[in-house]
Design a protein around this nucleic acid. Structure first.
Lengths: 218, 218
DNA sequence: CTTGACACAGAACGATTGTTCGTGTACGAT
DNA sequence: ATCGTACACGAACAATCGTTCTGTGTCAAG
């Protein structure tokens, strides 16, 4: 009698199903599991799905196409890439290595975020982002991008100042106006945006959990 | 050319799909929609699904069994009770009537919030909450309670000042210290908390959606 | 050694399920 | 009147997808 354990193959299946479900909004087929987990036979997929079901790790409806459902659906892990603070460049996927391990991620409801985007999260450190109305400990969720459109809030690295900042972006007459979210504060005008300004990502959401830590994926 | 509207049949389809998805964790087949909505032909189902997709009310993957996904599955609606602003008392369930209709609610992932609580949401109006690092347009999610423990961020009505505020709460030597989230700002000391101070709720989360409006339930 | 459980393999089967196509009606614009 | 478009209907089709069946190999208990 196996007590709690599942085999490594079953664990990979479970992981794949959850990831697939997050990405697509529906479950994979047996054949897709077979391919992606690297299982040679369909019946083995079925066999192990039954195991997972008996363990209570998935639910399944017989005879229903794509009828698998993971236990905790709808959550999408968003990798925490590092910290964001005034005095240091923003760590960004594709440019920097992540500060946190691969399993350090925010689990956020799919539906609050744009779909199929390669999002990542940063933890705000220190009170330097106050003029962006962002608090020490807040999570900032970003979409990596190197350019900004007017009105978007973006994470910017200012070369001259050696400073990271979160501001609303406006391109006007060849100059860039960086507007703080806090209306009592003055904008920064960048005269030479090409040399001085590097957009690192667009802010998609700010989350400030006060009562409960955000659940970590995995 | 139809501009925005959908037919009554399409609305029923959408409702059914969402309900089905909630119940089962996966989408219905065309034939199930046909039966339950009372449509005589499969191709009519398909036709109207295409309409719904063009309207952005559902998403669909071609050639995928049960490949429909409603815009927002499996979320917990949190009733939006009204606005929160400095000059007016916080509307609170059980005391005030809701400002918004019953179907005005935030759809938020269960997993980000404490379980089984009677939460409600307020929309921040104006910039008066700046010292709480809360922005005009932010959503503040509250748990109704009349008392606070040290360190909790609460929504408070100050009778003398006739002012609503969001502050960290500390009870010290018979007095209450209300600490702004913004560390550059000074605390308020309340000498007569019993008379002057009314706790309306505990702030559980602050959400600032920048990229995408939060989906409304219904 | 035998037995039986557990895990895996491959292939054929048949139900499930989206797609296509031909047809018809109503209605406003040309 | 005629044309185009939105909407509806029904049947046949073809791909998708879970199920079943027959086997193989391993390993511990008897």
């Amino acid at each position: 009698m196996r007590e709690t354990g599942i085999t490594e193959r079953q664990a990979r299946m479970k992981t794949f199903i959850e990831a697939y479900f997050s990405d697509h909004g529906y479950a994979p087929t047996y054949r897709e599991i077979m391919k992606n987990v690297g299982i040679p036979s369909l019946s083995v997929v079925r066999y192990n799905l039954e195991r997972l079901q008996k363990e209570g790790l998935i639910e399944r409806d017989p005879r229903v196409a794509r009828g698998i459902r993971p236990q905790k659906p709808g959550l999408r892990p968003i990798r925490i890439w590092g910290y964001i603070q005034a005095g240091e460049p923003t760590p960004v996927p594709g440019i920097n290595e992540p500060v946190f391990g691969a399993d350090e991620a925010l689990a956020i409801s799919q539906d609050l975020l744009p779909r199929d985007e390669n999002l990542f999260a940063l933890i705000v450190r220190g009170d330097s982002m106050i003029d962006a109305m962002v608090h020490d400990g807040d999570y900032v969720i970003l979409k990596p991008q190197q350019e900004a459109r007017n009105g978007e809030m973006v994470a910017i690295w200012l070369k001259n100042r050696e400073e990271t900042t979160l501001k609303y972006f406006f391109f006007e007459n060849g100059k860039v106006r960086l507007q703080p979210a806090n209306p009592t504060m003055q904008p920064i005008i960048i005269d030479d945006p090409d040399e001085n300004l590097e957009v690192r990502g667009k802010v998609v959401m700010v989350i400030r959990p006060l009562e409960k830590r955000l659940p970590l994926a995995q």
